[in-house]
């Protein structure tokens, strides 16, 4: 039974990888098509109207009815769903593929959990599988609020890379939990860390795009030849910066919780809440880096590109913590079952 389920889980993962690969190509195609000026793609957040425009179609005007006359309403940023953005068929296809891939991925993860009879994040393979699932999940979730589909290439690319490495290197059959992990803190501590990673990934992507976009905007003002044509269709860097910040603070809060929950668990399992174990150190470093990012954003001269670089460094540390510290560093967290 366990064998069948975990076999099925593996099959679904392979399916998910295939679909994600197709989605990745399609997302990339969409970005490539944005070069051509004949295709008009307007991302919702891109609609960044500074002009004070008298509008007569808003809910406000309806509410006023005949009681008054709306004289002027200024909008400095757009509500994402006020107006349906025009999107290309390619982008829609890529998004649908992502949804399908996510469905398979979710199925694989759930089956693995059932096969193991516990939460599916107790070793490096399961952690990679659930981690990538959550990254895609957070991406889809955030897309409900802000249209971030232009990040699809990056998000799915990252997920493909991680899943690829994990299935090649980290696959292990289902095994029972070692006593050290038999704690409800495993459920809480790890899943929150994974979700935080999902938000950090989006923040990373947005900060990266923000830097590219800022560069392009500078190129445009300096009348130099602008690079990366697809950037033309993306929101202005300030809007990207704002979004990146929102993703990163959600990540930061979840990461803070991870740190606290980890300390409580460490107290229960190892007899001290903090012992500068390598994984603890890196969790702390990441926390400090993102704290630095948040502070940088409030520091004159640092808001914008400099703070964005900090977000990039922060996420690199997250990836380092996940991929390198887990595998190559000696420490108490190294029962990842490789």
């Amino acid at each position: 039974m366990t064998d069948t389920l975990s076999q099925l889980s593996l099959l679904l993962i392979i399916g998910a990888i295939a679909i994600y690969a197709a989605a990745f190509v399609t997302f990339a195609l969409d970005l490539a098509r944005r070069r051509s000026p004949s295709v008009t793609v307007i991302s919702a957040v891109a609609r960044h109207a500074e002009a004070e425009t008298p509008t007569s179609t808003t809910r406000l005007a309806n509410a006023i009815g005949n009681t008054g006359v709306l004289v002027r309403q200024s909008t400095t940023s757009a509500d994402a769903h006020e107006e349906r953005p025009q999107t290309s068929g390619v982008l829609r296809a890529a998004f649908v593929l992502t949804l399908v891939g996510f469905g398979l991925h979710l199925g694989a993860d759930v089956l693995r959990g059932i096969a193991a009879g516990r939460v599916p994040w107790a070793n490096m393979w399961e952690f990679s599988m659930t981690g990538t699932l959550i990254i895609v999940g957070v991406f889809l979730l955030v897309t409900l609020k802000y249209d971030l589909r232009f990040l699809g290439t990056f998000v799915i690319g990252l997920v493909l890379l991680l899943l690829g490495i994990a299935s090649a290197r980290y696959y292990v059959p289902v095994a029972p939990l070692p006593p050290a992990l038999q704690s409800y803190w495993l459920v809480i501590h790890v899943i929150v860390a994974i979700i935080a990673t999902g938000f950090f990934a989006l923040g990373f992507a947005l900060s990266g795009v923000q830097l590219l976009k800022a560069r392009r905007e500078r190129q445009e003002t300096d009348a130099r030849p602008p690079q990366f044509a697809f950037l033309r269709t993306l929101p202005k860097w300030a809007a990207l910066e704002n979004l990146a910040y929102r993703m990163n603070i959600v990540g930061f809060i979840l990461w803070t919780f991870t740190l606290i929950a980890g300390a409580i668990w460490a107290e229960k399992a190892w007899g001290r809440y903090w012992g500068w174990d390598t994984k603890e150190v890196w969790t702390f470093i990441i926390w400090v880096l993102y704290a630095g990012y948040i502070h940088a954003r409030a520091t004159r001269g640092w808001r914008g590109s400099r703070s964005a670089w900090l977000a990039l460094i922060g996420f690199s540390a997250v990836m380092f913590n996940f991929g390198i510290v887990n595998v190559f560093f000696k420490g108490l967290h190294s029962y990842s079952g490789l």
């Binding site: 004070e52 406000l60 006023i64 005949n66 009681t67 008054g68 006359v69 709306l70 004289v71 002027r72 309403q73 200024s74 400095t76």
Partner: peptide, 14 residues
């Protein structure tokens, strides 16, 4: 106020 974000002006014709 017209310089502030979200500025709305309306005339009440009640």
């Amino acid at each position: 106020l017209s310089r502030m974000p979200g500025f709305i002006a309306l005339d009440l014709n009640d």
